[in-house]
Simulated assay, not measured.
Amino acid sequence: MSNSIAAPLNFIGQSTAVQGQFSDVVSSLNWQTTAASIDSQTAEDVRRVLVKKNLQIDDFITLVSPAAQAFLPEMVAKSQQLTRQRFGFGMSLFAPLYLSNTCANECSYCGFSMSNPIKRLTLNESDVENEVRALKTKGFDHILLVTGETSKVSLSYFKKMLPIITPSFNYLSMEIQPLEVDEYSALRGLGLNAVLVYQETYNKTTYAKHHIKGKKSDFNYRLDAPDRIGQAQVHKIGLGVLLGLDDWRTDSVFLAHHLRHLQKQYWRSRFSISFPRIRPCEGGIEVGSEITDKQLVQLVCAWRLFDADVELSLSTRESAHFRDHVLPIGFTSMSAESKTQPGGYAEDAQSALKQFEISDERQVSDIAKLIQSHGLEVIWKDWDKAYNS
């Protein structure tokens, strides 16, 4: 990848009719059987997979298994090679822009949960203008809009705010409450390029335990949100699980099934995977199933070996030390100088407004220098709004 603009995509031929949601697929998968399959993998299985070119779900199971840990140096080397072959020497930078921390959900791991006694804030037009100016000053051309999940920040709110935001940025992603197909289509018409929606965990029992109240407690409605995004012909669909809620290996295998389902049906969309680990937050929980730094590296490499085309994102949830060392191994984009509270860029907002604590708090200029120190090129722009259909 270089600073040249990516080629436009033609969505003619992409499925717009429902051909079966992922909730239909996941009903045929078994959590315990998948976990047992992961644990049964051997060193010989790993060696066999490492020499293959086209990997299937069974191969991904092998790469995330405990048996693959001994092969981490080989996985890192192959992951880095595949990343350079497919994406070149570029690393895209983006920043989240939090529009609201108001939320009608009760989630055990999130600082925005409705019962947490924090100050609530939803940005108005003037606030958004100030945030946009602050982010443009830092050089960003790709931003991720984030909100809590509530009717206060529904389609009508975005119809007011996106015309303020989109003139200043060429690529706009959103991480918001799941919507209907026609609502995603309306946002696409306003300049939306990508939607990120994380299932958090694919274990329905664990999901119910951590999503106590609100619309997010509807497991299947959230599970099928990426299908609705694809049906709306959104350019990119972002997936992920919250690492720490349940067994990261089993959750990741279910996520691989989800990706393959979406790729078959919405094959003209791009796809990305994020790796959020539970971070401290107001009223937050203890980690239920820890994933170590070494295991996270294994997971990132497993994804790159499994799918050379999928985009992988590195979050400021991770420590500066960790990000310094892992950014070349398979990632294609990373956030920088993130603020996880509304109004965080234009002024010093209160810590209590944050969704979670950031670990890497360095300025974007420092992150740019870090990328260059690895022999990579900082990509500020890899899309032009003229390509938006």
Rank of each mutant, 00 (worst) to 15 (best):
P167C: 13
T250W: 04
A208V: 10
V195G: 08
G111L: 02
Q19K: 14
L155F: 06
A35H: 11
R323I: 13
C107Y: 00
T34G: 03
T250I: 11
G288K: 13
P163T: 10
S365M: 08
A225D: 07
V18Q: 13
N220T: 12
R260E: 15
I118F: 09
S100W: 00
S154H: 10
A225N: 06
S156N: 13
H325W: 09
M161H: 02
T150V: 08
Y266G: 00
L223I: 02
F271R: 02
R228Y: 08
D247T: 00
A194F: 08
E74A: 13
M91Y: 01
Y171V: 14
S108H: 07
D366I: 04
K119A: 11
E149C: 05
G230S: 07
F11Q: 13
L82V: 07
K138M: 15
K236I: 01
T34A: 08
I358M: 12
T122D: 04
A134C: 02
G240H: 09
D324S: 15
P280K: 05
N30Q: 10
Y345V: 05
S365I: 11
L82N: 05
H257K: 10
E129W: 03
N220C: 08
R323W: 10
G244D: 01
R362S: 06
L245Q: 06
L327P: 07
R228F: 04
F89Q: 14
A77I: 06
Q19W: 09
T137H: 03
G244I: 06
R133F: 02
T34R: 06
D24S: 15
E44L: 13
V195I: 15
S15F: 07
D39L: 07
L376Q: 14
A346M: 05
N124F: 03
D24K: 14
Q199K: 01
Y202H: 07
F112I: 13
D58H: 02
K236D: 12
K78P: 03
R120D: 05
N3K: 14
S319C: 06
S335W: 11
S37L: 08
G139Q: 11
E318A: 02
K52E: 09
G343R: 03
E44M: 12
L327T: 10
G283Y: 11
S359I: 01
I38L: 03
N203A: 05
F89C: 08
P117M: 14
F356K: 02
Y221D: 04
H257Y: 15
Q231L: 03
E175Y: 08
L55P: 04
W303G: 08
Q263K: 15
R268N: 11
Q263L: 06
F60N: 00
Y207P: 12
D45Q: 09
Q341V: 09
F158Y: 15
L63D: 00
N105K: 12
H321K: 07
K294E: 05
G148P: 01
V51Q: 13
R323V: 12
T316Y: 10
I273H: 05
S185I: 10
L162T: 02
I212Q: 13
T62M: 01
E44Q: 14
L135A: 04
T201C: 10
D293R: 04
S185M: 09
T150R: 11
D39Y: 01
S217A: 15
S173K: 03
A352I: 14
I285T: 07
Q177C: 01
R279G: 03
I5Y: 12
K52L: 15
